[in-house]
Simulated assay, not measured.
Amino acid sequence: MNEEKSQNNRERIILHLDLDAFFASCEEVRKQELRGRPVVIGADPKDGKGRGVVSTCNYEARKFGIHSAMPISWAFRACPHAIFLPVDMRYYMETSVRIMQQAREKFPECKFELASIDEVTFDVSTFGFDGAEKLAREFKKELKKKEGLTCSIGLGPNALVAKIASDFQKPDGLTPVKPHEVKMFLYPLHVRKLPGVGPKMEEALKALGVETIGQIQNYDKAKLAKVFGKNGEYLHLEAQGKSDREIGGEWKAKSISRQATFEEDTSSQERILAALDALVEEVLEDARESKTRFKTIIVKVRYENFETHTRQKKFRSPVLEKDAKIWARELMKGFLKIGRGVRLIGFGVGGLEEEKNK
């Protein structure tokens, strides 16, 4: 089946919606005096001696090099005059639920995939390209009016292109990419815009004389496969803007998870475990707010070469919060003994069930 056609031979159109700097933007909505100032959400910096990490930050803070998963002490040194605030997951979740419901009402009866608290993907093929773009513009205006927030939206023939397009004009962007425009849209972009391309692969590609997606498009596929194995084949396909991944999901979550990508690969156990602790707390807060218990704990690690592994532990009865924190560290430590550079970590819980009223 042609990847740009749906089952009834209709042109496939995917919309990716990403709420801009969501946690920090939520704080700016309820505290107007924060607008225009660098805002960092995460652990208490304790005057540069804090041990936690940055959860997220606004665009003003990013000008100082601050980013998610950065040790909070580093963020404080980079911008000591920033406003440091704790994560208020209840507030963010309540806001997210409202917005996602508004999005579902705007794109009714469309298959969707809730990627995270601030990202969602819809199959909007039923509206046609022009119709989907019109609805996207309307939604952006309504979001700003109702919630005081902005989002960036990408439209494309598949989820890969839509995701890259949503990042193209951040913040508050709308980037439609029609099927015949895909290769030219991707052509001048840096290789890091492709999912899975991080610092190590970027350097390896640079050694081959490749720095843009267009250069990957024109590179010999067999040579890429020789250097990167299966990843080389995927890379060549993605550079053409090809992806046949279907969109679909359930509104009721089967799991709750968070992940964090380090700006630079790290083998520091202290830094990795501090980031893990922050992810665990965010997931536990989500579980509390949704009155959900869980029987499975999952950790994920992605190494510098993009090799990805997960480990999980299942329990017969719902897990206590203190045990979840202990087991998360135990499972993660098994990945860290070999001292390899780590690019990304994740934590999640599964086997969900509603909390019984006492």
Rank of each mutant, 00 (worst) to 15 (best):
V342T: 07
A162S: 05
R77E: 05
N305P: 11
L331H: 01
R104T: 05
E233H: 10
E133Q: 11
S267E: 08
N2T: 14
L320H: 13
A239C: 10
Q269W: 14
G241F: 09
R51M: 10
F122L: 04
D44V: 02
G128L: 09
E109N: 11
D130G: 13
L208G: 08
G36Y: 02
D44L: 00
R37A: 14
K46N: 12
V283F: 00
L34E: 03
Q32N: 12
I164K: 00
L143G: 02
F84I: 05
R10G: 12
G248D: 06
V283K: 01
K63Y: 13
V29S: 00
K313G: 00
A278W: 01
Y234M: 12
K163V: 00
N158V: 08
M100K: 08
I345K: 03
P176C: 10
K221Y: 08
L174A: 06
S6P: 08
L320T: 11
L194R: 09
V197S: 06
Q217I: 15
V39F: 10
V301P: 01
K358P: 14
P176T: 11
K106H: 09
F122E: 01
K223I: 14
Q102V: 04
R293H: 10
E355T: 01
F168Y: 08
K140W: 03
W251A: 06
I256V: 05
G229I: 13
F294E: 02
S317P: 06
N231D: 15
K141M: 00
A324H: 01
E181D: 12
M184Y: 15
F228S: 12
D244H: 09
K111H: 12
R51S: 10
K291Q: 08
L276G: 00
L224M: 15
H190Y: 07
A115G: 07
K111G: 11
R37M: 15
V87E: 06
K144T: 10
N8S: 14
E289D: 07
I117V: 05
A207K: 15
F127M: 04
V182S: 08
R10S: 14
E4K: 15
L205S: 08
A159C: 13
L320G: 10
M70Y: 01
R98F: 14
R340I: 15
D47P: 03
E105M: 11
T175Q: 05
P176Y: 03
Q32I: 09
G148Q: 01
T266V: 11
L149V: 02
E202G: 15
A24M: 05
R35F: 14
L135E: 06
A75L: 04
E354M: 03
V280N: 00
P80N: 03
L205E: 13
A159H: 05
L186T: 09
E238D: 14
K230D: 13
L149P: 02
L320P: 08
R302Y: 11
Y303R: 04
K322N: 07
